[in-house]
Design a protein around this nucleic acid. Structure first.
Lengths: 213, 213
DNA sequence: TGTTTAGGTGAACAATTGTCCATTGTCAAG
DNA sequence: CTTGACAATGGACAATTGTTCACCTAAACA
């Protein structure tokens, strides 16, 4: 593909950007306005050049009918190399007993995909997401309805963990001071629950919170 | 939301399908042809009904400028058969001036993928994520370092919006009471900032929060 | 020096496209 | 029986939008 001039690149980017922002393509005169051209023909020249170089297609005579030939996938924004690994996470409401992967398929609410680079996950682990009920973690800024991504691993002091208490999975802060037995603590100063730790009951450590607004 | 009639559903599906296949929206007369209407006004009637029911938006007088409000419930969305439709979102830190709302490739921190069903997104491309700096939204439970998913669209009263203030993108609460001019408000009772609204400066509405723990 | 290419002005034109008016018919609810 | 929502016809109009012609400047080039 021939190289684009700086100006042609600008035009192309504006067209792409307009579509991305508004959901539809710009008209010639909208491009003209953006670049303060005094003539629509300035735009026409650039469009012809872009078509000649094969990066752009149009349907003659029809309004706002662009088609951009992106080098890669036409629709998807191109993925940077470091973002190829994506964690695919089942979202579960409450886990009655056992591990989340033993939960029957009906217990799955939805799925969540989070890129490793942006959230720092290790993809190899069997992560899952848990929908929070109740106010027991409000002091850790986790609220009713939030989804918390859990990564199965051993907890260390200060971690927020998903733990099985009374046949139900709940979020608690894991406290382990040197020389003392560890315990679990709810992060709500109005309901300061404390629980002894059964090591087997800890299902994993919270790595991220996702909240729909 | 009111239910659509069978005919309205057909029209809507054709519009969506057309965009899916061609990359741009159909004109009124293209819809007319598809349904063998003898008058464009038949199409107009359906479009008005769809707008009235809130599933469709248009820009009056402008060609091929549809915007479809996909319902949030996953059942109603019957786009293509690939059920793994995922919103692929660039994560940006701060957005500099120049192109106020443009995400330059260098400014990309990472990438976030959120499944539509779990987060209730309506658009599959135009969203982006913004990393929050500062404490201006702590009373809305959004904290320093959180990532906020922004969907470009017009704000309504009570929305949390990403707005360009002093060449910098910030999160604010959008307040618009009937009969009063709208304004922006920081959600922090210790720093109760207020800003007048420049309509052009609103980049989008916050749809979700993602926080790494 | 002449020629090509990129970039642009200005005005006019024609096709596309959205909009509106008046009317007709069906059907279900009140 | 009337009313209102839904669906559609037919024609006209006006705004939007793409297209073209003639002409200009500057830089690159051979």
């Amino acid at each position: 593909m021939k190289d684009l001039t700086a100006r042609q690149q600008e035009i192309l980017e504006f067209i792409e950007h307009h579509e991305w922002r508004n959901g539809f393509w710009p008209s010639i005169r909208e491009i003209q306005e953006r670049f303060d051209f005094r003539s629509t023909n300035a735009v026409m020249g650039h469009l012809r050049a872009l078509e000649r170089k094969g990066v752009l297609e149009r349907i003659p005579g029809q309004a706002r009918t662009f088609r951009i030939n992106r080098p890669d996938d036409p629709d998807a924004v191109q993925m940077p190399e470091d973002a190829t690994e994506v964690v695919d996470i089942p979202v579960v409401g409450a886990i009655a007993a056992g591990y989340p992967d033993r939960v029957e398929s009906g217990g799955e609410i939805g799925r969540l995909q989070v890129d490793i680079a942006s959230a720092g996950f290790s993809s190899r682990r069997r992560s899952f997401a848990l929908q929070v009920r109740g106010e027991s973690m409000v002091d850790a800024e986790i609220y009713d309805g939030d989804m918390v991504v859990i990564e199965p691993r051993e907890a260390k002091d200060g971690d927020i963990v998903a733990a099985l208490i009374d046949q139900e999975t709940t979020l608690k802060r894991y406290i382990q001071k040197p020389g003392e037995p560890p315990y679990l603590k709810a992060e709500n100063k109005f309901y300061p629950e404390l629980h002894p730790v059964n090591e087997l009951s800890i299902q994993g450590v919270a790595k991220a919170v996702v909240r729909s607004l």
